[in-house]
Write a protein that binds this DNA or RNA. Sequence first.
DNA 1: TCATATTTGCAAACAGTTCTCATTTACATA
DNA 2: TATGTAAATGAGAACTGTTTGCAAATATGA
Lengths: 141, 141
Amino acid sequence: MAGKIDSAGYEDILRAAGVRVTRPRRAILQIIETCEDHPDATEIYRRALKLDKSISLATVYRTMKVLEDKGAIHRHVFDNGPARFENAAHEHHDHLVDLDSGQLIEFHSDRIEALQEEIAARLGYSIERHRLVLYGRKLRK
Amino acid sequence: MAGKIDSAGYEDILRAAGVRVTRPRRAILQIIETCEDHPDATEIYRRALKLDKSISLATVYRTMKVLEDKGAIHRHVFDNGPARFENAAHEHHDHLVDLDSGQLIEFHSDRIEALQEEIAARLGYSIERHRLVLYGRKLRK
DNA sequence: TCATATTTGCAAACAGTTCTCATTTACATA
DNA sequence: TATGTAAATGAGAACTGTTTGCAAATATGA
């Protein structure tokens, strides 16, 4: 039922991060744990209001930073848009942006990952993280 | 000598784009044609002031948009920083960001490009453009 | 229950970028 | 070479996304 905050395992992530388990944080975590898309801060705020009607946008931003620092979420910036977030628990993937619909498609390629490592090594670097985004349009068949 | 605007071929790009050749545009184009780095709008503005001391930051932004629309420059956003620009005439490459120094290293891999095409095709898409950025640190040898 | 350090909501501040508008300028045509 | 007009400009206000300062509220350990 919307409006109720599920107290399930979400709290563990916060406790593991060594920060206090508060009502706003539980709401935000529940959202990013269960959502299927890549919401930005305003959208998370909108959704969180249904779970905790006194939450503020500032707290959303603060919580996203905490979660990002703890490695619990990833932050993406597509083109020049607002930052968008996703659960880091999902296995690693890159993104393809449908330029017509704006839809985000996830994909993964071990071969690309391996090539990236190879290139970085050749340049004398080790990769800490990377961002690969393809911008394209549907092929008409 | 700094302060003089070289009227060489830069204008062609503007004329080819079907826009008027103005003093501020000539200054900006000369900068992005000759610079070796990836300046942001404020930095381009700073440099342009030496060539045309009445130029405004708004015009820098407007010109960057015109040039981007015409395909003459590329716009990059690294992490959450300001947009940075580079001459599209350089052959295509991706970037490696040195997380310690902030240095940008350019690289290119036909194999990665080919893999990207392959993946997009498998998903039913054709790639219009892409962004690949590696964030890493120097290996100690 | 209590003490206290953390977190919060709010509003103000901030950075980067875009917009409005009156003035200036490029340049096609005469 | 002069001129009319649409395009471009500079200045600053406005806007979007994000961060911060602060007093009040709250989570957690004792």
